[in-house]
Design a protein around this nucleic acid. Structure first.
Length: 478
RNA sequence: UCCUCAGUAGCUCAGUUGGUUAGAGCGGCGGACUGUUAAUCCGUAGGUCGUAGGUUCAAGUCCUACCUGAGGAGCCA
């Protein structure tokens, strides 16, 4: 007999037939005559109600069916007599694969704090909340590949171990097979990496962008989607030491095209979630609303599904940095001295400023462009004004920066000059500069933090809850 | 890394100006009852009060250091 997933049978089309299901027990409600087992197999947020006759199976046997025990059940699928579900399974045969000692199993059929579940991240998949999150995460990963594939982009696998330490995107994790206690030293006392595995110092990648540019300047449109590592000591709800990033890079795209793609991309991902993950989104929305009840009125945010629809249906605001500064200088909080940090042309916007623009002033996603060149990376295209670069940051309500990107500087001389000004070792970047030496083209790209997208789509507040096994400072469990 | 707050039963928390035997709800276990919906009712077990020092006749409570977590900031995706 072929096992069916619960998702396939709760619709009710198979009522009147005999089915085989396998899964884990969420709860069991006992009684003298009949037991109700809520069975979940991860295929859907919904549980299957299994009805087990006590006389038929025996009290002793049913005692081992506790929360998280694993079962195979053959039974007759019938319309439910109760009101909580459309169908239920009258069990005729139950096999217990594995018991779960209720004295020791940590996840109880009750609401747990997210902090507690984070400490039990190996078991949190068995909760409704996390099974919903990881189904959505899968759906989003699929939607990303689907989107780029439909647009003719090539999925390029950029290296995870890199020999380049000039990317400048952040602190790196060193990759080495040298003896940490007693590494070979050079005469000046520094570590001799020529004796290391790769014959040089290597690190985990902080971005696939530079390699992505190599692909784009031949294949036209590429994207990467892979793990990225930052060794920064960031302790926030928006940062991870290991996270997943999507980095498209497009030849012949200028800043305008880059913005168009970023906006269309984000909207289509949200649309995909709304069309394919409604059960899970509904569950997460209700969960959030329960939490919001405890907050004061003015701190409550928009209902999750309403928020997703809003972003999907409305155009993002596109705003030059210089105008953003003017808006901020003209704002009430600025005039009343409510901002903690100063607002001056040439300094980077602080979280409080971004939040004001997105959440108070425009009340929708904002794409900030044309930043002062001093606060952005060397590879960004220098604008004709001599002061700004063609950078773009997409800011989302509640998340902050979800995408960072730019048109790249395609002019060899300008790029090298900028690298020298910013102290980037030009001689180590010959491979990168070859894209400008040979058949250079205008091109653009951006990076989307996958977990930041997940925060927005699921409405979760902590990035550690949208990745299966979060890696953060002082934490590499499991 | 900085600021603020927290750490008491398996979980979520209460614990008065320092003062006898540390409490509740949920969960577990035992029982009753019931086509139940995180069922209900009765009973019951369960604690190195984050760790290490210190102050005191007396510390869950006060002080110091450290560890861990959360919120915010910086860095960024």
């Amino acid at each position: 007999m072929k096992r069916l997933k619960i998702k396939e049978i709760i619709g009710g089309e198979l009522i009147g037939t005999q089915v085989l299901v396998k899964g884990w027990v969420r709860t069991k409600r006992g009684s003298k005559n009949v037991n109700f087992i809520a069975l979940n197999d991860g295929s859907t947020i919904h549980n299957l109600q299994v009805v087990a006759d006590v006389e038929k199976f025996g009290e002793e046997f049913l005692k081992d069916i506790n929360t998280s025990a694993s079962l195979a059940i053959i039974g007759d699928l019938v319309a439910s007599q109760g009101s909580g579900q459309a169908v239920e399974l009258n069990a005729t045969e139950i096999v217990i694969y594995g018991k779960a000692d209720p004295d020791k199993y940590p996840i109880q059929p009750k609401k747990h704090s997210l902090e507690f579940l984070r400490e039990n991240a190996h078991l949190r998949f068995r909760t409704a909340t996390f099974s919903a999150i990881f189904r959505i995460r899968h759906a989003m990963a699929f939607a990303i590949h689907n989107y780029f594939n439909s647009k003719g982009f090539i999925y390029l696998h950029t290296p995870i171990i890199t020999g380049s330490d000039a990317e400048g995107a952040g602190q790196m994790f060193r990759v080495s097979t040298l003896d940490a206690k007693n590494p070979p030293l050079l005469e000046d006392g520094s570590v001799d990496y020529s004796q290391d595995f790769f014959g040089k110092a290597t690190n985990l990648t902080v971005s696939g962008q530079l390699e992505g540019e190599l692909g784009a300047t031949a294949l036209s449109d590429i994207y990467t989607f892979g793990p990225t590592f930052r060794a920064e000591n960031s302790n926030t709800a928006r940062h991870l030491a290991e996270f997943w990033m999507i980095e498209p890079e497009m030849a012949f795209y200028e800043l305008q095209d880059n913005m168009d793609l970023a906006e269309d991309f984000l909207k289509s991902l949200i649309k995909y979630a709304l069309e394919n993950c409604m059960d899970d989104l509904d569950f997460l929305s209700k969960r959030l609303q329960e939490e919001e009840k405890n907050k004061p009125m003015d701190e409550r945010s928009m209902e999750l599904i309403e928020k997703l629809r809003f972003v999907q249906e409305n155009d993002f605001v596109r705003l030059p940095y210089t105008e953003a500064i003017n808006i901020l200088k003209d704002s009430k909080p600025y005039k009343k001295g409510k901002f903690q940090y100063p607002v001056d042309w040439g300094t980077d916007l602080q979280s409080e400023h971004e939040r004001y623009l997105v959440e108070k002033h425009f009340k929708k996603p904002v794409i900030l462009i044309n930043y002062p060149k001093e606060i952005k990376s060397f590879y960004m295209k220098q604008n004709d004004d001599g002061k700004t670069v063609s950078a773009m940051d997409v800011l989302f309500p509640g998340i902050g920066e979800i995408i960072g990107g730019s048109q790249r500087e395609e002019n060899y001389d300008k790029l090298v000059k900028r690298m020298e000004e910013m102290g980037v070792p030009v001689h180590e970047m010959d491979w990168y500069l070859d894209t400008r030496r040979f058949g250079t083209v205008p091109h653009s790209g951006f990076g989307l933090g996958f977990e930041r997208l997940m925060l927005f789509v699921t409405g979760m507040g902590n990035i550690r809850d949208v990745i299966a096994f979060p890696r953060t400072p002082k934490n590499a469990e499991f």
